[in-house]
Design a protein around this nucleic acid. Structure first.
Lengths: 361, 361
DNA sequence: CAAAAAATGTAGAACGTTATACATAGAACG
DNA sequence: CGTTCTATGTATAACGTTCTACATTTTTTG
C-alpha cells in the first residue's frame, strides 16, 4: 500500500487531483473515468482505477452537487410513526444498495410550511430526486417542485399529476376488500372509521378508502347502511371520539378502520370496556402493522406491502432521473390478512392472505 | 415583489451573485452577512437582508460544503424498527427546528462494512457532525472517524472514548431497577433474557443490562439464582429460543427481558401456550415502546426517554461542532413503568413511573 | 499513400459559496 | 490638524468536481 500522495489537501483528504497525479493523467481524465464518459481507453481506465483503489479515493458528494449528480435520493416523511415505513425503507435500500445512490431521509410534520421547507432543503443539497411518503401538500405545490427536481409520491392519489409520478396501493380496492370480507361472513351493519376533515382532499389515502367503502356498500345493496364516523386528528379528542363510537347505542356490528393505528387503539378500548371483539364488534384495520399480527392483538388488516411500494417508487424515480418525462402512476393490489378480529368463521388463529391483482397505468 | 434578477443562473436559481447585484454590494459582503461575520455595518446588513427576502434566496448547501458548513446533522440508524427511534428523532428535530441546522437520516444494517460505508458517505456530504444511534462498530473505528468529524453516540457505552461523546441511559441501573422491582414484590427466582453472543462487547447496551442484572441479584443475596438465557439474533431460531425458555421445567417465576421487542414476542407466546402473565411468569421489558402500553399487551417496562436522549445528543454534538474538544459522557436515569405483567400488587391496570436520578460526567 | 473520420486526453472555465488579504474610509487621539 | 487605529467592504483565490472545446493521435476509407 502506497503512502498518501502529497497532492492531498491540507485536511488530508484524497481528491481527484491526488488520483490524477498518482495515475499520471489529467484531472479531466479521472473525471471521465468516474462518469463513465465517452472517450476513455482501457489503458487509461486501468491506470485510474488502480490509483483510486490504491489511494482509497471517494468523490466529495458536496463538490459533485455543484455541477453533476450527488447520487442521492431524498425520502421525505411527515410521520415517523407510520407503521409501514420500515418496509418502504427496506424496499428503497434494497434497490439502491448495488448502486452509487444513497437514500437520505428527512422527517417533517404534516404542515405545508414545514413540508415545503424540507423539500427546499433537499433541493439545496442538490439531491437527484425525491420520494414523498404520504405527503400532505396540495397537488399544485408538488407540481411546482417537480419542475425543479424529479419527484415520486407514495400514498398520494392524484389522477391529474403530469410532471411527477405516483405509486400507490389501490386504496379504494383495499376498502372494498374489507367490506366484501365482512359481507361474506354475514355482517350487514358495517361502519367505517375515518380521519377528520383536515384530510379533505381526494388525493389523500383516507378519502380514497372512504370512497372505496361507500362504493362497496352500494354495490352490495347496503347503501342505506353507510355509516362513516370521522375522528379528529389531535389527541385527546381523537381517543374520545373512538370511545364515543364504542358507546353508540346504534353501533354497527362490524367496522372498517382507515388505519391500524386507530384500530388498535379501538381494540384496546373495547377490551377495557368489556366489548368483545369480534363477537360484539368485528374489526378490520389497514396497513398490516407488526402490532396487528401479535396474537394478543390479532387484528385483521389490509396489507399494502410497503416493501413493494418502496421498490417500485425507487425504480420509478431512477427512471425519472435518467430523463423520462412521461407520467407514471403505479397501483399495487391490497390483500386482506384475516385474523381473529374479523370473526364469524372458526379457526382464524393465524393470519391468512386474500390477494388481488396488481396493475400499472 | 420584484421580478427574478437577470444575474440568476441559466437554471433559474437565485445565487449569492444575484443577491449582491440586487443589493448593489459585493459577493463577499453578502457572504459576510450570511455568516454573521465581523465587519458588517447595519446599513449593509439591511440592504442584503432586504435583497434576500425580495429574491427568496436560499444558499446552496452543496456549495457551502466546499468551504464552510452545510448545517447538517447526520443521524445513523442500524435498525429502523428500534421502538424508541421516533422519540429520539422528535428530540433532535425539536432542538434543530429554530436553527439553520437540518437532520438527515441514513439507514444501514448492523454490519461493520455497511455502517462504515454510511459514515463515509455522510463525511462525503460534508455533514457537520454525526449522531450514531446504537452503533454496532468497535470503539477504534468510531474513534478513527471522530478524528474527521464530530461524533456523538447514543446507546453505546464506551468508558474509554476520548474524541467522541456518548449519551446513554444508565443501562446497568435500568436492569437493577427491574430486579429490585421484582424483589420488592416477593419474587426470588428472577431470570434474564439477553441477546446472543454477536453483541459480546462491553460497549453494548445488552451487555450493560446483563451486568446490571447480575450485580443487582448479587447485591440482593441472590447470586446463586442468577439465570441468563441468551437468545440468538436471527429468526427463526430467535423465536424458538424464546419458546424453549417458556418450556423449561425450571423456568423462573419472573424474567427481565433486554428489550420490549423480545418481551412482547414472549408475552404472545405465553398467551398461546396458556402460560399466564403475571401469575405463572412475571415480565419486565426495556424501552417502554408504544406497544407495551396497549392494555391488550400491558407490559411493565424500563423507560429510557428517547426524547431526552435526542435532545441531549443534539446539544452535545452542536457544542462539539462549535469547537469543544473535551470528552463528555452523559447518562440519564431509567424509570420503571409498572403494568400488569409485573404482578403481585393489586391495582396495576395503569402504568406508573418510578424514577431515578440523572447524572452527567 | 493521403485524406477524412473517429477516438482520446488535456486545458480551462464553470458551478456557488467561503475565507483572507488588504485598500480605504471613518473615528480617536495628541 | 496630522497621525494612528479601527471598522468596513471589496478583490481574489480556494474548495473539488463536471463539462466542453479542441489539439492531437489513431483508425478508417478510397
Amino acid at each position: 500500500m502506497l503512502e498518501r500522495d502529497e497532492t492531498a489537501t491540507t485536511s488530508g483528504r484524497v481528491t481527484i487531483r491526488t488520483v490524477a497525479a498518482h495515475a499520471g493523467v489529467s484531472v479531466a481524465a479521472v473525471s471521465k473515468v468516474l462518469r463513465n464518459a465517452y472517450g476513455v481507453s482501457e489503458a487509461l481506465r486501468g491506470k485510474v482505477e488502480a490509483a483510486i483503489e490504491a489511494l482509497g479515493y471517494r468523490p466529495s458528494r458536496a463538490a459533485r452537487g455543484l455541477r453533476g449528480r450527488t447520487f442521492t435520493i431524498g425520502l421525505l416523511l411527515v410521520d415517523i410513526r407510520n407503521p409501514f415505513l420500515p418496509e418502504i425503507i427496506d424496499g428503497v435500500n434494497g434497490i439502491l444498495a448495488p448502486s452509487h445512490y444513497r437514500a437520505m431521509i428527512g422527517v417533517s410534520e404534516a404542515r405545508i410550511q414545514l413540508e415545503t421547507s424540507l423539500i427546499e432543503s433537499m433541493i439545496d443539497y442538490k439531491m437527484d430526486g425525491l420520494i414523498l411518503i404520504a405527503p400532505r401538500l396540495p397537488s399544485e405545490i408538488i407540481a411546482r417542485f417537480a419542475a425543479q427536481i424529479p419527484i415520486v409520491a407514495i400514498g398520494y392519489h392524484d389522477p391529474d399529476a403530469k410532471n411527477f409520478d405516483t405509486v400507490n396501493c389501490n386504496d379504494q380496492r383495499g376498502a372494498a376488500v374489507a367490506v366484501e370480507a365482512f359481507i361474506e361472513r354475514g355482517y350487514r351493519k358495517i361502519g367505517m372509521l375515518t380521519l377528520g376533515s383536515r384530510e379533505g382532499h381526494r388525493v389523500s389515502v383516507v378519502r380514497q378508502r372512504e370512497i372505496g367503502y361507500s362504493e362497496a356498500m352500494q354495490m352490495a345493496g347496503l347503501g342505506e347502511a353507510i355509516d362513516i364516523h370521522s375522528i379528529p386528528v389531535a389527541s385527546p379528542v381523537r381517543e374520545e371520539s373512538l370511545k364515543a363510537f364504542l358507546l353508540r347505542p346504534d353501533r354497527p356490528e362490524a367496522v372498517f378502520c382507515w388505519s391500524d393505528l386507530d384500530a388498535i387503539t379501538l381494540l384496546n378500548m373495547a377490551a377495557e370496556m368489556g366489548i368483545r371483539v369480534p363477537e360484539d364488534l368485528a374489526v378490520i384495520g389497514y396497513d398490516n402493522s407488526p402490532t396487528a399480527a401479535l396474537s394478543l392483538v390479532n387484528l385483521a388488516s389490509i396489507d399494502q406491502s410497503g416493501h413493494a411500494l418502496g421498490v417500485l417508487a425507487t425504480e420509478t424515480l431512477l427512471s425519472r432521473i435518467e430523463g423520462r418525462e412521461t407520467h407514471l402512476a403505479h397501483s399495487t393490489a391490497p390483500s386482506l390478512i384475516t385474523r381473529r378480529s374479523l370473526g364469524r368463521i372458526a379457526g382464524l388463529e393465524t393470519g391468512s392472505r386474500t390477494t388481488q391483482n396488481s396493475s400499472s397505468q
